[in-house]
Amino acid sequence: MIGCAIHITNVSKAFGTVKALDGISLEVNRGEIYGLLGPDGAGKTTLFRILTTLLLPDSGSATVCGFDTVREYTDIRRAAGYMPGRFSLYPDLSVEENLEFFASLFGVKVSDNFDMVAPIYNQLAPFKTRKAGKLSGGMKQKLALCCALIHRPEILFLDEPTTGVDAVSRSEFWDILTHIRQSGMPIFVSTPYMDEASRCDRISLINSGRILETGTLDEILHRNSMPLLAVKGENNYHTLLALRKVEGVKTAFLSGEYIHVFTEEAFEPATLSAIEGVREVKVIAPDIEDVFIKIMGNGNS
């Protein structure tokens, strides 16, 4: 489709007997942050490698900025900025040397494109002579992002940019992405962390190589609304075991300081308050993890 930043049609890829991707289709529009959410092994990195032309699909096709990932791969390599999941920088080069190196790969000068990275790079500037290998996790991510942006790409691919980074750096990183998006650049980003869904314009949930759901976070939550109870006991482990024996309780899972309980439609929440050791029972709206669990469960059964 014209105007789509990414257009994926029925892409599959197997490694031996493992189906890494099984009929993936999705579209990313210009100017949106599109999140691919799923656990390790879901197929996220395989999809990124196909879109960035590092891997050929077994079947199906995809375009990036209108270019076919197989026939027009050289165009995509120029157009795309790619931050792979593993630390992609040279640890023995300094911060500024890494940036210059990546600029030179694309035949551009850091000074010509500095406006692309200035807001991020200025945070790193006090450490510009430090070797990249000696940076903290959050600073490494920022430098890797600068290196992916320095050739002024038309689209940004970020494969798990926030994995292993602490909560403060993670939040700062998403602030940066929101800022970049304002320039109109589409951003395709993957993460295993469901709470990051709220920072994306649209998301797809992926598991075992298949897309489970696609839409805005609100749409997905709305489509999957269901009765959910949060229960807290004096001892949540004891309460969890007790809840699983109650008729009408479909599943009970620990979820932080509460236990999340899915029940049959007509279930009366007060039944649970009567269980010994239960302190609190309340009706809550499912969050994206609850939805993911529900859909995963449906897929298994």
Partner: peptide, 16 residues
């Protein structure tokens, strides 16, 4: 880190 939400909850159940 990185495990799916169901496994993560099962893991915490083992911890409990």
């Amino acid at each position: 880190g990185g495990v799916d939400p169901i496994t993560r909850r099962q893991f915490w159940e083992m911890i409990y």
